[in-house]
Amino acid sequence: MEINFKGKRALVTGAAQGIGRGIAEKLLQCGATVIALDVSKPALDQLKTQCPSVELLVVDLSNWSATADAIKSVFPIDLVVNNAGIATIDPLTSITEDQFDRMFTVNVKALINVTKTAIGDMVARKSSGAIVNISSQASQAALLNHTLYCATKGAIDAFTRATALEYGPHNIRINCVNPTVVMTELGRKIWSDPKMGEPMLAKIPLKRFAEIENVVDAVVFLLSDKAAMITGSCLPVDGGFLAC
């Protein structure tokens, strides 16, 4: 299945490493002009070294006005991947106000701000568009000691459905991808520990965790015209975890 984004401008948040970097690289391969947004300039510079055509946008997503101004500076935008996110693993009684504020700011508030800004441009240009939000299986199934993380990802799913309803008439599609554990560099460090990994693997029918390319392929499909009739969906990339 050939997918071509020639002539499209794609914004990817959290693009300097892990899943975000994989998405940015794949979109470049598919012909898109990619704007890679991240808070880490050194990491973005490394991406630029390997992918010279990528455009860089250094901004802290927790800063509402700075984020909106930065995104407006790279208009027009046709495709958006809201990938940036953070996670902590703590029981409910250990959660602090700072943890709450930080996680909801990055995982939810920033995602809403990026989406709002990008959609404003699409509507003003009367242009179609596609947005994919990176959610998690944790939005649909309880994970032990992930109370706060589950709450943020549940918010992403609900926001995805609501915006899909609102902007469908403008031919703007909004979906999300809900992965299981993904074997990023950090994922391998945490989940290669049998005490962490084995209980989770036992709940996955395919008996393996996701690789970065598994998530990338789902995202690229949903951004493409091959998914022209798909909006408001939450696509699990979980090896069957949510089927159990």
Rank of each mutant, 00 (worst) to 15 (best):
I3M: 15
N4M: 07
F5W: 02
R9H: 09
A10C: 08
A16T: 04
Q17H: 01
R21S: 04
K26Y: 00
L27I: 09
Q29G: 15
Q29C: 13
A32Y: 02
D38L: 06
D38F: 02
S40D: 01
K41H: 05
L44D: 01
Q46F: 13
Q46K: 14
T49H: 09
C51I: 13
C51R: 15
C51V: 15
L57W: 03
V58C: 10
S65H: 08
A66Q: 10
A66E: 00
A66I: 01
A70G: 10
A70P: 14
I71P: 09
I71A: 07
S73M: 05
P76A: 06
L79M: 05
V80N: 07
V80H: 02
N82P: 12
G85H: 01
I86M: 09
A87S: 14
L92R: 11
F100G: 12
F100C: 10
R102L: 10
F104T: 12
T105F: 04
N107K: 13
N107H: 11
L111Q: 06
V114A: 02
V114C: 07
V114L: 01
T115S: 15
T115E: 00
T117E: 00
A118I: 06
V123W: 00
R125H: 00
S128P: 14
S128R: 12
G129K: 01
G129T: 04
S135I: 09
S136M: 09
A138N: 11
S139P: 14
A141S: 13
H146P: 15
I156E: 04
D157T: 14
T160E: 01
A162N: 07
A162M: 05
T163Y: 05
E166F: 03
E166Y: 06
Y167L: 08
Y167Q: 05
H170R: 14
I172P: 12
I172V: 05
R173Q: 01
T184Q: 03
G187W: 00
G187P: 12
I190R: 14
S192A: 15
K195N: 15
M200R: 15
A202C: 03
P205K: 06
L206I: 15
E211R: 08
I212D: 01
I212K: 12
E213M: 12
E213S: 13
N214H: 09
V215P: 07
V216S: 00
V216Q: 00
V216C: 03
S224C: 07
S224A: 03
D225E: 12
A227V: 08
M229N: 12
M229T: 14
T231F: 04
T231N: 05
S233L: 05
P236K: 03
D238C: 03
G239F: 02
G240L: 01
A243K: 06
A243P: 03
C244S: 08
